[in-house]
Amino acid sequence: MSTEEESAGTPKLAVMISIYHVVIFVLSGTCVLSASETNGLLSSHLTLVYVLAFGAIGGALNASRYVVIAVRHGAYDNRRFLWQTLTPIHGSILAGIGFVVIQGGIVALTPGIDNPKTYKYFLMGVSLSEVRLKPPPLGGQIYL
């Protein structure tokens, strides 16, 4: 195989990072599906589990989107390894902070919530969209 053919393929680090993101999707999804109120978790703890899992999913979606776009355009940069691995963790942390802020009443959403499930779904949605940490542009040709 020539050097030209090797450079045309997907970088090994990009493949490894993609596998890491898939593992996060699977683990977070499993966490959400297996957590239930019958496991002895209090409602607020269960909601926190959902929020942290959805924050990790949002971070992994954001980082994996960059990997796919960069590989597609032949501009994958190994120096972004830390950003790609830590973004799901940052997403989970930011979602947890958002949960504490809302749960603690620092941000009042409504005067009262009648249905706790509606509140839980709202927090999961906010957690999923919490992460918007974009890496620097790739030479101006790729827009994320």
Results as ranks from 00 to 15, higher is better:
93 I>S: 04
63 A>P: 09
12 K>N: 12
1 M>Q: 08
103 Q>F: 12
21 H>P: 11
37 E>N: 11
107 V>Y: 08
26 V>Y: 03
38 T>S: 15
143 Y>H: 06
82 L>F: 10
136 P>C: 01
99 F>S: 00
7 S>A: 15
55 G>K: 07
134 K>N: 05
140 G>P: 09
13 L>T: 13
92 S>C: 09
15 V>W: 02
81 F>V: 07
46 L>H: 14
89 I>W: 00
64 S>A: 08
15 V>G: 05
106 I>E: 03
35 A>F: 11
111 P>E: 03
27 L>A: 10
7 S>I: 15
130 E>N: 05
32 V>T: 11
12 K>P: 07
76 Y>N: 06
14 A>S: 09
115 N>M: 03
22 V>N: 03
22 V>W: 06
95 A>I: 10
51 V>L: 09
5 E>P: 10
132 R>T: 12
70 A>P: 00
80 R>K: 11
55 G>W: 01
31 C>R: 09
4 E>M: 13
19 I>M: 11
19 I>C: 02
10 T>A: 14
83 W>I: 02
81 F>N: 00
72 R>F: 14
91 G>Q: 03
132 R>H: 03
120 K>N: 03
34 S>H: 07
36 S>L: 04
143 Y>D: 05
135 P>I: 12
136 P>S: 07
93 I>T: 06
52 L>W: 00
75 A>M: 13
83 W>P: 00
29 G>K: 03
139 G>N: 08
15 V>L: 08
16 M>R: 13
112 G>R: 00
100 V>H: 05
131 V>F: 01
105 G>A: 01
36 S>T: 10
75 A>I: 15
65 R>G: 09
106 I>C: 00
138 L>M: 10
21 H>A: 15
140 G>Q: 08
124 M>F: 04
25 F>D: 05
80 R>W: 07
67 V>H: 08
41 L>F: 13
89 I>C: 00
112 G>W: 06
39 N>E: 10
37 E>P: 09
67 V>L: 01
57 I>T: 06
115 N>T: 04
85 T>Y: 11
88 P>T: 07
143 Y>P: 01
76 Y>K: 05
119 Y>L: 04
122 F>S: 01
103 Q>D: 14
16 M>I: 08
60 A>V: 15
3 T>P: 05
137 P>D: 15
106 I>W: 05
26 V>N: 02
25 F>G: 03
